[in-house]
């Protein structure tokens, strides 16, 4: 992981000179300014910063949900910043797994059906989809809850279903926006344990936004958004500077 933009284009994710401006009530708000970032396969990075610092905006840009005002984002060799809306949608389906703070499960679908949603977009047969969903729910420890509806699950369990939905199609990386923001400490610890397992055991790349320093400690690196730019801390501080 580097934030100085000097890693060439060899990383899994390369962000160069990323700018994002908003116009609100005629006023220009410059959220991100010339941001650089390189992320390697299997890294777990936490973004922190005060409200309005642009953490979620950065996550949205990395996930192809929003387009930057300037700069580029390249993921596994695909430059996504110039993709059309429909191409970006297809790209998201293949490369990104989303975990939201409020879980965002479809309440009228069971855990199984929620996790199956990304797979409906693939050419997998029904039996293959079932196998994948069962594996994903097994990874998050909810094999015995697959036919429960979200309302029949606890907050922690709902977030586990969201994580299963995010990993079921084996995306290139996971984007987690405050994944423990709506959970008690015990449930938050369990979720972070699970995300840690995904990184260590399954070599998933995870980019996470959080307000919680305890949660951020679980990441390999913690990056602070300050005045639209990323400032490294965590691993850098511990290692005495320089990228991994």
């Amino acid at each position: 992981m580097r934030v100085d933009g000097r890693n060439g284009n060899a990383s899994l994710i390369n962000v160069r000179g990323l700018d994002k401006k908003y116009y609100r009530g005629g006023e220009e708000i410059h959220v991100l300014q010339g941001l650089n970032l390189d992320v390697e396969q299997g890294e777990f990075i936490a973004f922190m910063g005060p409200s309005g610092s642009g953490k979620t905006t950065l996550l949205n840009l990395l996930g192809g949900l929003d387009v930057p005002s300037a700069g580029s984002i390249t993921v596994a060799g695909d430059e996504i910043t110039h993709m059309s809306r429909s191409k970006l949608t297809e790209w998201r389906a293949r490369h990104v797994g989303f975990v939201f703070q409020m879980y965002n499960l479809i309440p009228v679908l069971t855990a199984f059906q929620n996790v199956e949603l990304p797979l409906l977009l693939t050419k997998l047969s029904k039996a293959e989809r079932r196998k994948h969903v069962e594996i994903a729910l097994g990874v998050v420890g909810l094999s015995d809850r697959m036919h429960h509806y979200p309302r029949q699950l606890s907050g922690g369990q709902e977030q586990r279903v969201t994580i299963a939905r995010a990993i079921v199609s084996d995306p290139t990386f996971l984007l987690c926006d405050e994944p423990t923001g709506d959970l008690d400490r015990k449930s938050a610890d369990e979720i972070m344990e699970l995300i840690g397992t995904l990184v260590k055991q399954y070599h998933k790349t995870v980019l996470m936004v959080t307000h919680d320093p305890v949660v951020a400690q679980r990441a390999d690196y913690t990056l602070h958004l300050d005045k639209g730019a990323l400032v490294e801390s965590g691993a850098i501080a511990q290692a005495g500077g320089g990228g991994r």
């Binding site: 429909s86 949608t89 389906a93 965002n104 309440p107 949603l117």
Partner: peptide, 14 residues
């Protein structure tokens, strides 16, 4: 609205 947005986020087209 939220659910449809999530569908779009995970790859369902407009």
């Amino acid at each position: 609205t939220n659910e449809l947005a999530v569908l779009k986020a995970i790859g369902y087209s407009d």
